[in-house]
Write a protein that binds this DNA or RNA. Structure first.
Length: 735
RNA sequence: GCGAGAGUGGCGUAAUUGGUAGCCGCGCAGGACUUAGGAUCCUGUGCCGCAAGGCGUGGGGGUUCGAGUCCCCCCUCUCGCACCA
């Protein structure tokens, strides 16, 4: 998709045209009166409006933060856009930079985003992906008092307290998050991240040079290599803290395996029971005592690896808690520490706030104006949209500032509050923000006074069936849910979940291999439509495998679908109206109606098509001529798959309105019912034959019929000990 | 490493959810119609065996009258996440 040098305006317009042409060529049913384009000011006006709504509600904020920086695309990437340390777009190794960015407070909604999943009709794999992404951890925050270290004046608590010049020293505490508070007696040292705010304070003069060197090295490293490289490195800060449980002194270390962005940026290391801490302790010669054993006698320190059993373990070397199981100890120890003011239960999430800033040209400008007197001022709603100016020179440079800053006429504005000279925000918003609310805009696309009309929205939304790729499992779907929840809280939506049902389609591979441009095996729809027709192409895509799993696109196999459509075509053209339809064929027809009607909502398109193929085989068996009433409902059934052919054939059958206005064929259970059934006969569980019996026949009659069959009877060597009969299905004689 | 999903004929797949394994399609084989056919139409097609029959759903155990389906162990593949305390 990426075409270097091409102006994004042109690129976007071309792609929309190309996509539209393909959709129309394939007969995709879409309401073209409601087309939306995120790059259209009529659309992004409301994306900007959404930003302002978040800003007003305190859910949009600006913060300095380390970001993933792609040196080739010269832009910031979300963590989600970094794949194995490389830029998702161009594959370049990503670096770390510090920039001021706009964030949306999605973590405020982490709990709801997680809890609501339980009541959504989504594929389990997608829900699991979201749960893992949100990454809830229940544990405790524990405070460790640092030995001989006090914080003095200058802090807000002292100056605001009116203590008339008296300076009250407060002990420095290091707070850590742990999911294993039960192991606190085994915590032998603390580790802080290199970026930890207390790092300077903690570092003693003797250790300063070494610590500074370590911090500098860590700062140079990009975020990704740091996480990929799992060799433990670290440096002693010189400080000691007090273990609130054991009272023992613990050295405070600094290491880059502790991440500032998770928890408190500091950990209590329990080397006996955590693999990473174990590795670190071994490297730096620190002790690895045991506090959890297989039983009460299992007290010797682990030597080969950390003992991480966390369910059936029993506490040892842990004072009054010895003998408790791990889950019991978790509660008891947190309660005990809480009483003494050094711990509290805490829930932590892996999810980070959503960085929506992009230092790029092509995107909706973030509607903020910076004024030296007033600070950041939101653009008044009446001034929306903030239109992206046409720029010939749109490429980002190495400054980390959006190309928009180079357009002085656009960039310099007066402050909406005080009227003095001010500057526009030059970041544009993430494309995921555009796509996180398009389903709200779509039904109201023609409204220019509101983002979405309440009455229209009430009628059409939430989306009752959403089908997409699993690549959206965590990004698009999570952001959309978040946006919807906020709009709900703002009183603008009656629902808080946008997609009642979600299913992910599978991946289609080609001749056994993944399709890729480099391999040159992508399917170009034009060629197939040209050669086989749009209907055969569409129907084949539905037929080649289970929809939710994908399948293997084989050029040779498409001929089978084409043959089916040809046979359908011939059947309609040859159909007679003389006489009556055949009862057996009508039975098969109604069985087919039932099957297709059930399969479509279940996304079992491949079996629905197989059922219609079977029916056509029955229709034409032994070169018989089909009756018009036998084929007419079939044309309705096939219409969603092969709309062009169905529309033509519907006309051939004498209708003057569209087949899509004709409704769905009615299923008649009586016509579908079989009067006789084939029952499998087993002897000792092995199938030995079948018997034809009237439907719903009772066991004695079926047994009699089975014994009358010599091929079956010969296996019944003694008198039956037991006979199992499953009505209309199976008879098993145990001898 | 953690999480999710999947292993069925030569191939893509199906199986009323514990009840005849292989529907439908590709391919292949034989035949018909043909000057001809990369068209169309019939017939056959899991493997071994002349047959009777036996064997078969990644491998090994188990539950059951009966297992592709349920339980335990193992192997392989695909896709996410990955120093998350």
């Amino acid at each position: 998709m990426k075409r270097p040098g091409l102006h994004p305006q042109k690129w976007t317009v071309d792609n929309i045209a190309k996509g539209t042409r393909e959709l129309k060529m394939l007969g995709i049913l879409y309401d073209w009166d409601r087309e939306v384009a995120a790059c259209d000011p009529d659309y992004y006006k409301w994306t900007q409006w959404l930003f302002l709504l978040f800003y007003e509600r305190g859910l949009a904020y600006r913060a300095m933060s380390p970001v993933n920086w792609c040196p080739v695309d010269k832009t910031v990437l979300a963590n989600e856009q970094v794949i194995n340390g490389a830029c998702e777009r161009c594959g370049t190794q990503v670096e770390q930079r510090f920039l001021e960015q706009w964030f949306f407070s999605i973590t405020d909604y982490a709990g709801r985003l997680l809890d609501n999943l339980d009541r959504l009709d989504w594929s389990e794999s997608t829900k699991t992906a979201q749960r893992n992404w949100i990454g809830k951890s229940e544990g405790a925050e524990v405070a460790f008092r640092v030995q001989d270290l006090m914080e003095f004046a200058g802090s807000a608590t002292v100056s605001g307290g009116g203590m008339s010049g008296e300076v009250i020293p407060t002990p420095v505490e290091l707070r850590v998050f742990t999911t294993r508070p039960d192991t606190i007696f085994g915590a032998t040292f603390l580790v802080v991240a290199p970026e930890h705010p207390l790092a300077d304070l903690l570092t003693t003069d003797e250790q300063r040079a070494e610590v500074e060197a370590y911090r500098e090295a860590a700062a140079k490293q990009d975020i990704v290599t740091r996480k990929v490289n799992k060799d433990k490195t670290g440096v002693f800060t010189g400080s000691y803290a007090v273990n609130p449980a054991s009272g023992e002194l613990m050295p405070v270390w600094m290491a880059d395996y502790v991440l500032m962005e998770y928890g408190t940026g500091a950990i209590m290391a329990v080397p006996g029971h955590d693999e990473r801490d174990f590795e670190f302790a071994r490297k730096f010669g620190l002790p690895t005592p045991r506090v959890v054993g297989r039983d009460l006698h299992d007290t010797a320190p682990p030597t080969d690896a950390a003992f991480t059993e966390s369910v059936n373990g029993v506490m040892v070397n842990s004072g009054q808690f010895n003998g408790l199981t791990v889950p019991e100890a978790k509660h008891a120890i947190v309660a005990w520490l809480a009483e003494r003011g050094s711990a509290k239960p805490v829930v932590n999430y892996r999810l980070h706030d959503w960085c929506i800033s992009r230092q790029r040209y092509w995107g909706p400008p973030i509607p903020i104006i910076y004024c030296d007197a007033c600070g950041p001022v939101p653009v008044p709603e009446s001034d929306l949209p903030v239109v992206l100016p046409p720029l010939e020179d749109f490429k980002p440079d190495d400054s980390g500032v959006s190309p928009l800053a180079r357009d002085e006429a656009w960039y310099r504005v007066s402050c909406p509050q005080c009227g003095k000279a001010a500057r526009r925000e030059t970041d544009v918003s993430d494309t995921f923000l555009d796509s996180s609310w398009y389903f709200l805009r779509y039904p109201s696309a023609n409204r220019d006074d509101v983002a979405f009309d309440p009455a229209v929205t009430r009628h059409w939304l939430p989306v009752n069936s959403y089908i997409g790729g699993n690549e959206h499992a965590v990004l698009h779907l999570l952001y959309s849910r978040f946006i919807t929840m906020v709009l709900h809280d703002a009183g603008l939506l009656e629902f808080e979940e946008p997609f009642t049902r979600f299913r992910a389609h599978g991946t289609i591979i080609r001749e056994g291999a993944k399709m890729s441009k480099s391999r040159g095996n992508v399917v170009n729809p034009d060629e197939y439509v040209e050669k086989w027709g749009a209907d055969a192409f569409r129907t084949y895509l539905m037929f080649l495998g289970p929809y939710e799993e994908g399948g293997d696109f084989r050029d040779q196999s498409i001929s089978g679908v084409r043959r089916f459509l040809d046979r359908l075509w011939a059947s309609v053209h040859e159909a007679t109206r003389a006489g009556d339809p055949d009862a057996a064929v009508m039975r098969k027809l109604h069985q087919t109606i039932r099957k297709v009607t059930d399969d479509i909502p279940a996304l079992s398109y491949n079996t629905a098509i197989a059922a219609m193929m079977e029916y056509v085989n029955v229709l034409r068996a032994h070169e018989r001529t089909p009756h018009a009433r036998e084929v007419e409902p079939l044309v309705q059934l096939v219409a969603p798959f092969a709309p062009h052919a169905a529309e033509e054939l519907w006309e051939v059958l004498g209708h003057d309105r569209s087949v899509f206005d004709a409704g769905w064929p009615a299923f008649d259970a009586a016509l579908a019912a079989e009067e006789s059934v084939t029952v499998a006969v087993q002897v000792n569980g092995k199938t030995r034959g079948t018997v034809q019996v009237p439907k719903d026949a009772e066991q004695p009659a079926v047994l009699e019929a089975a014994m009358a069959d010599a091929g079956i009877a010969k296996f019944v060597t003694g008198s039956p000990k037991k006979v199992i009969y499953v009505r209309n299905r199976l008879l098993n004689v145990v001898v």
